[in-house]
Simulated assay, not measured.
Amino acid sequence: MGVGKSTVGKLLGERLDAACRDTDEDIVSGAGKPIAEIFYDEGEDHFRALERAAVRTALAEHEGVLALGGGAVMAAETRELLAGRPVVFLEMGVAEAARRTGLDVARPLLAVNPRQQWRRLMEERRPLYAEVARVVVSTDERTPDEVVEEIMDALELRKA
């Protein structure tokens, strides 16, 4: 959360002259309401089902840059779909997360004790992110442009 997936995805898409698609935006568009409301109205299980479907659809339909929600990798189905693809794990520390989001923003999974919840989520998710990632890029104290440059170098995306 707050690592810059959407921002970096859009910039990377621009650099590659490719469209960027964000599965969180797909979910919001399809549900007709923000993610926080989906969590509160239908629950996390319902949201995760929508997320799995959004990722499956996007991977089947979209050939450009794809930004996935932070919890998407929790589903084994999604990790299987990502296997062998040029996945980039954008990571940041809790200090950077606090600076960027304040860790008090209206995010459903951080509603109670945000710093502790963020750490718990990262402990659960980090091994799964690492499992599917071809590249790990830290966004701590870096601009989105700097992050995109590292991704392009790491994935050898520069045109000759």
Rank of each mutant, 00 (worst) to 15 (best):
R158L: 12
G93M: 07
D140I: 11
S6I: 09
L66M: 03
G70L: 04
E25P: 02
L12K: 14
E51V: 01
T101E: 02
D26C: 06
A49E: 15
I27T: 15
V87W: 04
L109D: 05
P34C: 08
E91F: 05
A54R: 06
R126W: 06
V8D: 01
F89L: 06
R119I: 08
E131V: 00
A72D: 11
E44D: 00
K10H: 08
V73C: 01
A133H: 04
A49C: 10
M92L: 07
L50A: 02
I35E: 08
T7I: 01
G70P: 02
V94K: 07
E131H: 04
G2N: 13
D153Q: 13
E44G: 02
G84T: 09
E25W: 12
G9Q: 07
D45Y: 10
L109N: 05
G102R: 11
A54Q: 06
L90K: 08
Y129N: 06
R158M: 07
D45Q: 11
E80K: 10
E146P: 02
L11D: 01
L121Q: 14
V135M: 03
V87N: 02
E63R: 09
T7D: 00
V55S: 08
G13T: 14
E141F: 13
G2A: 08
R99A: 13
T57E: 12
S138E: 02
V147T: 15
F47H: 04
D17T: 11
G93C: 07
L16T: 12
G2E: 09
A106K: 07
G4L: 09
E63G: 13
V137Y: 01
E91N: 10
R126S: 15
A54N: 05
A72M: 06
L155C: 04
R125M: 10
A130W: 02
A97V: 01
A76Q: 13
D26A: 09
K5V: 00
H62D: 02
V3T: 08
T78I: 13
A97E: 00
D153A: 15
T143E: 03
D45V: 12
E42Q: 10
D145T: 11
R134Y: 03
V135Y: 01
R125T: 10
G4M: 06
M92H: 03
I38E: 03
E61W: 05
E14G: 09
R107I: 10
V8G: 04
H62E: 10
M74F: 07
R15S: 11
L109A: 12
G32M: 08
G71H: 15
D45K: 12
V87A: 15
I27H: 09
A83E: 10
